[in-house]
């Protein structure tokens, strides 16, 4: 519902420079001249640098990609592996910073065409790290997770459910709002301005990405890489193959989410076949899945033999057992 409100305000701000208000015409300063609904271009100082500009240690004509960050990462990894002390992560972080700063001028000349990959990418990675730290290393994060897992228990533990829900939504809004920097300040839509063709479906995809990543920072980074690849591939494919509709990509993503939501949709008989002993026992009564409670001795035998724990689960399958 909020997205319809947002789009209304969006059109209001950059659709036209005048608006009627109780019979009078008022002026707005946002829309750039021209037919297209777009704002003025950002001042160069307000733009995010692209990663190429950021890592360029040569001249703008003769690109040289800095390798400092590679050395820094290697130093960090080495520090973590070889230092056997309590605060090894802190030491290796400092080490990485020093190594990175020292080797920053070392660069390899590259020939890359202009790309809109910009600082927003690093910002996103930083946010993932921030999110991980907040959720699993601080008291605030503990409260947030407690509220999500069991609101009642959290309430009895002295955690305010309402406060944390508001906090969670606020944080969610902040992270989602940062996505806008990629499109406006980062110039991902080929110009540094607010335009009518903001890819709004990114918001819905975000839900799916969070689900696929199981709400963990690493998982979200990985699943957003997958969705990003699918999206970019879709654009590429629709340019190269005329017969293919671009929205097939959306269908693909929807199916990915559907199947993930379904969890294991293959029958248990395929993923976790019942033990032969059980099948023999069930032969008299009918299907193995519906087998009545298995005698305790047999259950023990099945478990002792290291076979899948089917006997117990088939017991749980009865209506009362499953409760």
């Amino acid at each position: 519902m909020l997205n319809y409100i947002a789009s209304g305000i969006f059109v209001f701000l950059i659709g036209s420079n005048t608006f009627p208000l109780f019979g009078k015409q008022r002026n707005l300063p946002f829309k750039a001249p021209g037919d297209e609904a777009q704002s003025y271009e950002l001042h160069p100082g307000a733009r995010l640098p692209t990663l190429l500009q950021l890592l360029n240690v040569g001249t703008p004509d003769q690109m040289k990609l800095s390798l400092g960050w590679v050395f820094a990462l290697v130093a960090y990894a080495l520090g973590r592996v070889f230092l056997r002390r309590n605060n090894s992560s802190l030491i290796s972080a400092v080490l990485a910073l020093v190594v990175g700063a020292l080797t920053w001028r070392v660069g390899v000349p590259v020939q890359i065409e202009g790309s809109q990959l910009n600082l927003a990418f690093l910002l996103a990675l930083l946010c993932a790290a921030l999110f991980g730290t907040l959720m699993w290393r601080t008291a605030t994060g503990y409260a947030l997770r407690a509220v999500g897992l069991s609101p009642k228990a959290a309430e009895y533990g002295g955690i305010s459910v309402a406060k944390n829900t508001v906090l969670a939504m606020t944080l969610a809004g902040m992270f989602a709002g940062l996505a806008g920097t990629h499109y406006v300040q980062g110039g991902a839509l080929d110009s540094y301005r607010l335009k009518g063709n903001m890819p709004v479906n990114v918001g819905f995809d975000g839900i799916a990405v969070a689900l696929m990543g199981q709400s963990t920072p690493l998982g979200v980074v990985a699943s957003s890489a997958l969705f990003g690849t699918i999206d970019t591939g879709g654009v590429d494919v629709s340019i190269k193959m005329t017969g293919l509709n671009r929205d097939i990509v959306t269908v693909l993503k929807a199916l990915v989410v559907l199947f993930i939501a379904a969890g294991g949709f293959l029958s248990r008989r395929v993923t976790d076949p019942p033990a032969p002993v059980l099948l023999k026992a069930a032969g008299a009564t009918g299907k193995a899945e519906n087998a009545p409670v298995v005698p305790a001795a047999q259950e023990g035998a099945v478990n002792a033999s290291g076979l899948p724990n089917v006997a117990r689960s088939s017991e749980e399958k009865t209506r009362e057992g499953g409760k």
Binding site: I207, A208, L211, N245, T250, V251, A254, G263
Partner: peptide, 25 residues
């Protein structure tokens, strides 16, 4: 399959934003 009902609903909505264009095309 005992999926989270909000997620499965979201997936259906996602499907609804893609399938019509493909069929119409």
């Amino acid at each position: 399959y005992r999926a989270d009902q909000v997620i499965s609903g979201t997936a259906i909505n996602l499907l609804a934003s893609g399938v019509p264009s493909v069929i119409l095309a």
